[in-house]
């Protein structure tokens, strides 16, 4: 069995989810290679070489890979696919974008967002916003898989794989990058943070996030998330949404502030180790999953919490 893991990265930094995808690959077993396709991404290739269990890193460097556009990425992965039994990527917005494109070209039914490996062809994945877990067996000769990082342990970073430079594949001239607005933050990234504190509709404005959520986050060294309602209302950017259709997090401690606990939100955080809910409605569904519930007005409770820490 030979497995290719496609690295998720920002050209200078490899994502934690990539390492966790390697953990999932280790559970399938076999020779594991990592593909780093980027622009000026040799540091990333170096980081990938350190992931325990990786035998080889393939590094393709070209401007066309800088923004991970689906069309050139899929061409590159397809050009390598012949040598592999399994193609895997983290289920982030990059992997979700190019992997199904690869799968369709290979005439393979992708297995999305796996949370457990039962054998080389059998996997578990959440369906219905995580309200059910399906165990599925794939009959495709080649497997195309995306992996939910939070479901797998981070491997050791003591490996020393070789890095091989490979050439670029064809560039279909049907898409091009125009611009990006990346959210800049000094706080930890949502995925991978030990503590996450999320605000909901009850915050009522972006200023209130600044005033009531961020100070507590900074005292705790926490990442900040949000419900869909808070993002839709424009209080915070889209990349902070936690849930079925946003990011999935599983920190040691998740604090939900002024969030009702809709199933779509729970889908993104109910695997957290300890859940705290602060909500003024004692009937709010979030309390049904919270280890510690505080029935209180957040505008009073949050300043108190900041002082108490």
């Amino acid at each position: 069995m030979t497995i290719l893991v496609i690295a998720e990265h920002s050209n200078d930094h490899l994502s934690d989810a990539t390492a966790k995808t390697v953990s999932a690959a280790t559970k399938i077993g076999g020779d594991i290679h990592v593909l780093v396709a980027g622009s000026g991404a040799s540091a990333v290739a170096g980081q990938a070489a350190k992931i325990a269990g990786v035998a080889k890193v393939l590094h393709a460097d070209d401007d066309h890979y800088a923004k991970q556009l689906a069309e050139p990425m899929a061409e590159l992965i397809l050009s390598l696919a012949g040598d592999y039994d399994v193609l895997m990527a983290p289920a982030g917005t990059d992997g979700k974008n190019y992997m199904p494109r690869v799968a369709a070209k290979l005439d393979v039914m992708q297995i999305s967002d796996i949370i457990a490996v039962e054998s080389a062809d059998t996997f578990q994945r959440p369906i219905y916003a995580g309200n059910a877990i399906a165990t599925v067996q794939s009959s495709d000769a080649k497997k195309v898989i995306t992996v939910r990082g939070t479901a797998f342990e981070a491997p050791a970073m003591d490996g020393s794989a070789s890095v091989e430079t490979i050439g670029a594949a064809d560039f279909p001239s049907i898409s091009e990058f125009v611009k990006e607005e990346l959210t800049k933050s000094d706080r930890p990234e949502l995925q991978g943070a030990k503590i996450v504190i999320s605000g909901g509709r009850a915050l009522a404005s972006g200023e209130n996030f600044e005033k009531y959520i961020y100070p507590v986050a900074d005292k705790l060294g926490a990442a900040v998330g949000a419900s869909r309602a808070a993002v839709d209302a424009g209080y915070v950017p889209n990349d902070m949404q936690v849930g079925q259709t946003g990011k999935v997090v599983a920190p040691e401690l998740y604090i939900a502030v002024g969030i009702s606990g809709a199933i779509q939100h729970l889908a993104g955080m109910k695997d957290s180790k300890v859940i705290v809910a602060i909500n003024k409605d004692e009937e709010a569904p979030i309390f049904q999953v919270a280890d510690y519930g505080l029935v209180a007005d957040l505008f009073e409770a949050m300043p108190e919490l900041e002082k108490a820490l």
């Binding site: 369906i127 059910a132 399906a134 165990t135 209180a296 919490l305 108490a308």
Partner: peptide
Amino acid sequence: ARLKTLKVTEPPKREAGIKVESVADLVEKL
């Protein structure tokens, strides 16, 4: 169908925990 569903199960159930009385109580418990 390329994927055969072998079974569909409930996710591990989370039990509701306790209600704390105050912020101080919460911090102490955490």
